[in-house]
């Protein structure tokens, strides 16, 4: 199954009439199969809205999104989603969380067990299989959430600020882990973040989005080979350029927030 994501003239307005909030305005973009794409922008730029539309959680007001040639109409396991809040099922052990999608799919028991064993090994979760999420740190929880998606081997992974709540060191570890996983099976990844450094560290390509309504302000390809050194001159040059773009939008966001109650 091909995993190209095609967004065509996507528009999203929350609410209606004069009170309607335009979240996305005429977004058109193609994410080629196997690309690691970051959506970057301040709060309220519609990056999460676009991701949720790709996931099938948020219906567009106009325009279309297709994944692998099929229009997105509802959520599905071909587009595995990783949430910032982990969204693990707290009543299930780590292994049951990872097995959930396989159960739903009707994968035979032995095969599911083999998959769970392989994935838990891959993500360093083998010793935590019978633990409950409440007993895990934030970093470990997010590993489980990623494992839960990987178990279904989706062609596309959608990640909504997945490392936003983690401390800097754990964050870097999981970024490296994600890059390692991505290098192995080259899934198409759309990764939402408001961290400029995170975007440059991870992505092949970065879409900088504007504050409300969300449009694509700049389409940037990151030319650096991996692993990337955040202290290098090249890295910092990109960071400076992107920083300027993002801060312009951040200023618009701050301005709007000071003059009207925030919606996002």
């Amino acid at each position: 199954m091909s995993a190209e994501i095609v967004v065509t003239n996507a528009v999203k307005v929350f609410g209606s009439g004069a009170a309607g909030v335009p979240a996305l305005q005429d977004i058109t973009a193609t994410v080629p199969e196997g690309q690691f794409l970051c959506l970057l922008g301040p709060s309220g730029c519609g990056k999460s809205t676009l991701l949720n539309a790709m996931a099938g959680f948020t219906p567009l007001s106009a325009g279309t999104i297709s994944v692998g040639g099929r229009p997105v109409r509802e959520p599905g396991p071909d587009r595995g989603m990783v949430f910032q809040e982990y969204a693990l099922f707290p009543w299930m052990s780590v292994e049951d969380n990872i097995r959930f999608g396989l159960d739903v799919k009707g994968v035979p028991k032995a095969q599911a067990e083999a998959t769970v064993a392989r994935i838990t090994d891959k993500l360093g979760l083998a010793d935590f299989r019978t633990r409950y999420p409440k007993d895990l740190s934030g970093g470990m929880r997010q590993r489980v959430a990623i494992a839960r998606i990987l178990a279904l081997d989706p062609p596309v992974m959608l990640m909504d600020e997945p490392f936003g709540a983690l401390d800097a060191l754990t964050r870097r570890t999981l970024q490296d882990e994600l890059l390692r996983i991505w290098a192995e099976d080259r899934k198409t990844i759309v990764f939402v973040t408001h961290s400029i450094e995170e975007a440059i560290y991870l992505a092949d390509r970065i879409l900088v989005m504007t504050y409300r309504p969300g449009r694509i302000k700049r389409d940037v390809t990151v030319p650096m080979p991996r692993p990337r050194d955040p202290a290098s001159a090249e890295f910092n040059a990109i960071k400076r350029e992107l920083g300027q773009l993002v801060m312009e939008e951040q200023a618009r966001f701050t301005d709007a927030e000071l003059h009207a109650p925030a919606v996002d």
């Binding site: 996931a55 959680f57 509802e74 959520p75 599905g76 396991p77 587009r79 595995g80 989603m81 949430f83 809040e85 969204a87 693990l88 099922f89 959930f100 999608g101 739903v104 799919k105 839960r148 279904l152």
Partner: peptide
């Protein structure tokens, strides 16, 4: 609702 969203994403009917 995050649990509902996660479960729908994983294909739950």
């Amino acid at each position: 609702s995050i649990y509902i969203r996660a479960a729908r994403n994983l294909g739950a009917g």
